[in-house]
Design a binder for these strands. Structure first.
Lengths: 208, 208
DNA sequence: CACTAAAGCGGAGGCGCCTCCGTTTATTAC
DNA sequence: GTAATAAACGGAGGCGCCTCCGCTTTAGTG
């Protein structure tokens, strides 16, 4: 799931000091490639391969990301930010129910990444416990906007809120790591979406 | 903190099938050496060094212990078993309060190991969750015997039980990984022991 | 531009991980 | 004892990790 290089994404991540142009370029490229490689080879992918594919030396990778976990964290954050940003973009471009549906589809991909990263993330979370609450808060806020907009213009039923939807999506966390996982999750999203659309447009919002 | 090779220790650990004599010898030697090396170099010690010191090939190590965690688990169990066994031996050899004091001293060493192993153990515990409750149950049972015996023959005060003592020892878990940790823990044991002896021996058998 | 200091680059090298398989050794059967 | 067989051994080899440091590039200064 490639996330377009956004103007703010990388900037915010490294608040420190302005990097030299070449350093900056390499860093960005490394993160981008790392996201790809982690996605296709799993979290234990070779860091040397990442450096190779990014066209930099292994030393450069290690200067920017002293440990594997540093790199994982940055990739994870970027993934989460991309997802949040997508919410706004989708909302602007599509009818609100379609936006919600598409966003949930991407959410599935995001979770897929996160599950792959699970072991490494667990190590991270013992060190950097804000990471999780941080990002998951922002993600669920993005979902809330989408749901509220769709409810407001009556393209989905009115008796649900974001946390209902999040719980309904909960199943995709727990399912085992089978190859069909992604397809099954996609079906779940579709099913959920049908349920959400049912009873919309009647303009009568039943209470729950 | 070497634990004497006990007759039962290794047998119980591997219930499976009888190993060939040489295999058995190598396995035991590996565990013994691993305990040493982990103690002196920390949990990330080189497995190749362990094999080297044990005088076997690296292949042999991996045949017996397919992953680092397998080896860590066996060492940890052995450590715990040694501690439990020590309770009985000390009780037989010394007055009950002295036995308790000496045992607690060894407990400090045991915890020191456990703390060093923390990261690796965390990985283990996600896979093998019985390990912890298993061993910690047996350890606290050993403590219970010692405390009860000491209370029974009036060498320590009667208004405490094993879980009180365990809680009193709790501080040694949380303290940070400083170099003075061990000394401080020893002082804690001494302090605790003085507290336990206070008010004991008020019946006819006055001194210890 | 030219020059320089500082920042960044990259890959060789040393070490550890783990697998694979030809060789050795213990055990069993005679 | 000897032979046959299964079990175990061990280390070479391939790969990844990470550090270190000589070389290159950039950004700043005149």
């Amino acid at each position: 799931m490639a996330v377009e290089p956004s103007i703010i994404t990388e900037q915010t991540a490294t608040a420190g000091k302005p990097l030299r142009a070449d350093a900056r370029r390499n860093r960005d490229r490394l993160v981008e490639v790392a996201a790809e490689v982690f996605a296709e080879r799993g979290i234990d992918a070779s860091l040397e391969e990442i450096a190779r594919r990014a066209g930099v030396g292994i030393g450069t990778l290690y200067r920017h990301f002293p440990t594997r976990e540093h790199l994982v964290e940055v990739v994870y954050r970027r993934e989460a930010e991309g997802l949040c940003a997508a919410a706004g973009e989708l909302a602007a471009k599509y009818p609100s129910d379609v936006a919600l549906e598409e966003w949930m589809r991407r959410f599935v991909d995001y979770i897929a990444t996160k599950r792959g990263l699970a072991t490494s993330l667990r190590i991270l979370l013992t060190t950097n416990s804000t990471l999780f609450s941080d990002t998951s808060g922002r993600v669920s806020q993005a979902l809330r906007h989408l749901v509220e907009a769709a409810v407001a213009d009556d393209t989905i039923r009115g008796d649900v809120d974001a946390s209902d939807v999040l719980h309904a999506l909960g199943g995709i966390y727990s399912a085992p790591d089978t190859p069909e996982w992604r397809d099954r999750s996609r079906r779940l999203v579709k099913l959920l979406m049908d349920g959400l659309r049912f009873g919309a447009g009647t303009s009568m919002k039943a209470d729950r």
